[in-house]
Design a protein around this nucleic acid. Structure first.
Lengths: 205, 205
DNA sequence: ACCTGAACACCGTTCAAGT
DNA sequence: ACCTGAACACCGTTCAAGT
């Protein structure tokens, strides 16, 4: 009578991954506020107490989900940096565009990652994951300083400014505080470029 | 037998305000995730169905709470601009410092305002409230352009860059993604100045 | 008009118990 | 080791009913 709900064979070995997969899907579909641990378990085809074998509680599952989000975001950044035929400025713009694209494609994941609902104030894994994002930007800035296009300051300082700008832009865009509706993503591309143009101008010598 | 819970005489006329007041306090104390409509009603000394006379549902109460937050934030900005003896650059730094101070003093309120949990995707009041924040920054930028310290661009464009930067900084700071623990607010003051210095450099001619 | 109490369909979490 | 089912103390929301 137990309905094995789609999403492939799961109930044998790696229930943990099945739960995370179901969680990510529910997060994207129903939004962070509407995702319940019982729903996740249901979607994975197990009883609602089974998740407690693999996660301390609901917050812990969400925390791991956020970490997965950081891995995805890092991938987007790495891709931007990978296009080495571009100069540092264009790599920085590409990173910002990737940032926006990631947030637009996974809005609820983005909220989960930066909404502060998950944070244990000093969670080691979370800090490692988020620092990796900053590190990728630092690489770009360092290269730009070496070539002489960016100001000769601490690379981490410049990276922080860059991250701050693109994060603020995306964050405001997605919160709705900028008055841009969810449907108008085309215009946002232009917005990103305008803002990043100013930021790069400020970071350049 | 009904316990009239502190917070002054409320149960007669303006239950709506009493509920908002209780809501704001609970939000600050227990965090956005832990605030329940029943708790709010309890704190206001009424039954848990009474709030429905004044708010459509829980989300509606939270939405109004967020609007109150914007009023507070605007006050902080207005104060920064009010110090007219300062030039536009220092007014901008003052605004950023005020932004940080507000977020630090009301972290859960800040999350509520920008966390996207409340947004009805085009709520009129929300858009008015958030645009007022941008307008205040625009005034500063316009003044700076007129005096010749900022680049001669659209004031709204420069204001957007400024808002983006300070919001991103505060947002990352508070999410914990920057690895700064909640206790270290002193260092953040320095951080704000460093970032804003770069931003202003980019906005200046 | 404004508030209450019971009721409904949900939660997260715990725990004894099954294989 | 891994999962289940009942149980507990909560939710948000609705609705008939009271004053």
């Amino acid at each position: 009578m137990s309905n094995l709900t789609a999403s492939g064979s799961s109930h044998h070995g790696d229930l943990k991954n099945a739960l995370l997969q179901a969680g990510e899907q529910l997060l994207a579909e129903k939004g962070i506020a509407a995702v319940s641990l019982r729903d996740v378990a249901r979607a994975a085809g197990v009883s609602h107490t089974a998740p407690y074998r693999h996660f301390r509680n609901k917050a812990d599952l969400l925390r791991v989900l956020a970490l997965i989000g950081f891995v995805r975001l890092n991938g987007e950044f790495a891709e931007a940096r990978g296009s080495e035929k571009f100069g540092p400025e264009r790599q920085l713009v590409a990173a910002a565009v990737g940032y926006v694209r990631f947030a637009m494609a996974n809005p609820e994941m983005f909220r989960l990652m930066f909404g502060g609902l998950v944070l244990t104030d000093g969670d080691a894994e979370y800090m490692v994951a988020s620092r990796a994002v900053l590190a990728c930007l630092e690489d770009i800035m360092r290269a730009g300083i070496a070539v002489g296009v960016f100001r000769d300051r601490d690379a981490s300082e410049l990276a922080l400014v860059a991250w701050t700008s693109m994060h603020g832009l995306v964050s405001l865009l997605m919160s709705g505080a900028m008055g841009v509706r969810a449907a108008d993503r085309d215009q946002s591309g232009k917005l990103v470029r305008v803002v990043m143009q100013h930021v790069i101008f400020g970071l350049s010598r």
